[in-house]
Amino acid sequence: MAEKYVFTLGQEIEEYAKDNINETSEIRDKCLSEIKIWLQEEKSNLNARTEDRYILPFLRGAKFDLEEAKSKIISYYILRRDDVKWFTNRDPSLPELQEIIKLGVFVPLRKLYHNQLVILVRTAAHNPRKHSQDNVFKVDHMILDIAALFEFEAAQIYGVISVFDMNGVGARHAAALTPGIVKRAVTAWQNYHVTSKSLDFVNSPIYLNVILNIFKSFMNEKMKKTVKVHTKGLESLHQIVDKDILPEEYGGTDGKLEDLINFWNEKLLNKRDWFLDDEKYRAD
């Protein structure tokens, strides 16, 4: 029998969850029960995880609106079925994935910012001639899985700040972001476990709006409102999050970027068996 969820995030977060996403112990238990019954009925269509840990983020993202949560779950597991390049062969020890992980394209910070998860997306850290964009997005999702599901549960309630460092982005990086890949990326993000609170672009090139317009064409209105472009380099970044949670390379005091990358690489490798098992969950 699966272990019943127990809220362990403290009274302050419990009050915030009640006031902002309609989460109380009674509502949570009722909704978890109803979603499990529904998943059992949909078993022939959805091979979905039925443990509390994996259902709860969808409920939180939907503010415990059952129909919206069901819609998110369906979209998520269909994406896992259809987007095989991102959701199969997710073995973090594979050389081609290790290379991208160690470059630090997608690096969550180790400390939360007002209980929000902050992610550095270093868009030019990889070589688009050598590293496929599909593998880059695969690694991104793998790291986010570990961060949001296992390391920082509060982010399911408070959301995620994504900081896109555009320094060094060239024509080849832009060319790799075809409309098809961009549409898949936006669809995945809008149906993911955690809510995007802001998409902040720093060190932005003058042609950034060309790229952003492609992304925005696939975004819903709610997500479009989270996009913010900053033009003052690191000074802009320091206005988004505090320096004491940033690595030294970004003007912060929380260690070296390499240490942060190694921190997440170790987390991924420790979850290798989980990733291999996780591939079987998808829409039929």
Rank of each mutant, 00 (worst) to 15 (best):
D145Y: 03
K130H: 13
S44N: 15
K197D: 04
K30R: 12
K102W: 07
S25F: 01
R60P: 00
K18P: 00
Q98G: 01
R90E: 04
E26H: 08
V121D: 13
K4Y: 05
L177A: 11
D254M: 06
F106M: 12
I206T: 12
T178Q: 07
K216A: 06
D91C: 03
M1L: 11
D140W: 08
D140S: 11
V160D: 01
D277F: 08
P205N: 03
A283H: 13
K130L: 14
K228D: 00
Y158D: 06
H193T: 10
I27S: 02
I214P: 10
V160P: 00
C31W: 01
G180T: 13
T253L: 06
S44F: 09
I211L: 15
L103V: 06
S33Y: 09
L117R: 15
K102F: 09
R110I: 14
G61I: 03
H141F: 14
Y77Q: 03
D284L: 10
D19Q: 15
Y250P: 11
G170R: 00
W264P: 09
E248G: 09
G233N: 09
E67M: 09
I13N: 10
H141M: 15
L177E: 11
I101T: 09
V169H: 02
A154D: 11
I240K: 08
D278H: 05
N115V: 04
D259R: 06
V194W: 08
E23N: 00
K228V: 05
C31Y: 03
D82W: 10
S198R: 12
A2S: 11
P179E: 01
A148Q: 10
Y192S: 12
S75Q: 13
K197E: 12
A283I: 08
G180Q: 11
H230K: 06
H173K: 00
A69I: 03
G252T: 05
K271L: 10
Y158T: 05
R81P: 10
D52G: 08
N135C: 06
K85E: 15
V229L: 08
K130T: 14
K280N: 10
L276K: 14
L117P: 00
R282M: 12
K225R: 14
K70W: 07
